[in-house]
């Protein structure tokens, strides 16, 4: 059931993320709904679900875009596991945690993807554009993650599996 909820949430997030507009001020960074979902699982669910969420989110995101397969999965998996490892040290249900982690995870994953694409010669972004993109990813990660967190909590409450941090 938890897997079904995860896949349902990922599909909805993928479709909505593809529909939401992007802006010049954020370097056309997309609203990071998938990143928010991975963060939610990293802060509240056992490791196997974190990995599942990270791999599937990356797979869907890369499949729907032109990114080489596995790039986003790698970024999400590493970020998710690092957060899962240190979640005992933070207040999981505090919105400031979601803002800070959301911003950091999104900027880290964006930077990783950008470096991979530059390395493969797939993009050559001007410095200003790349910098703006990272600032945009940081800001959007901080804004979107608490919203995704709240929505996911409500979804899981509705489905009846809303236990706190699991091990």
């Amino acid at each position: 059931m938890k897997q079904i909820a995860l896949i349902f949430a990922l599909f909805i997030a993928a479709v909505v993320q593809a529909m939401l507009p992007t802006t010049a001020w954020s370097g056309w960074a997309p609203a990071p709904l998938m990143c928010g979902l991975v963060l939610y699982y990293a802060l509240t669910r056992p490791r196997y679900l974190v990995l599942e969420a990270a791999l599937l989110a990356g797979l869907i995101e890369d499949s729907l875009g032109q990114m080489p397969l596995g790039t986003s999965s790698f970024g999400y998996a590493v970020a998710g596991l690092i957060i899962e490892n240190y979640r005992e040290d933070v207040v999981v249900n505090q919105w400031t945690t979601h803002v800070v982690f959301g911003a950091l995870v999104n900027v880290a994953v964006t930077l990783f993807a950008m470096l991979m694409l530059i390395k493969d010669g797939l993009i050559q972004p001007p410095f200003v554009y790349a910098a703006l993109r990272l600032v945009g990813a940081f800001a959007l990660g901080g804004i979107v993650s608490p919203i995704v967190f709240t929505l996911m909590e409500r979804l899981e409450n509705a489905l009846g599996h809303s236990e706190a941090v699991e091990d």
Partner: peptide, 13 residues
Amino acid sequence: IARSRDGWWQTLR
């Protein structure tokens, strides 16, 4: 049915 929002490429689906 969709537009690329990743900003790296300009695509439509």
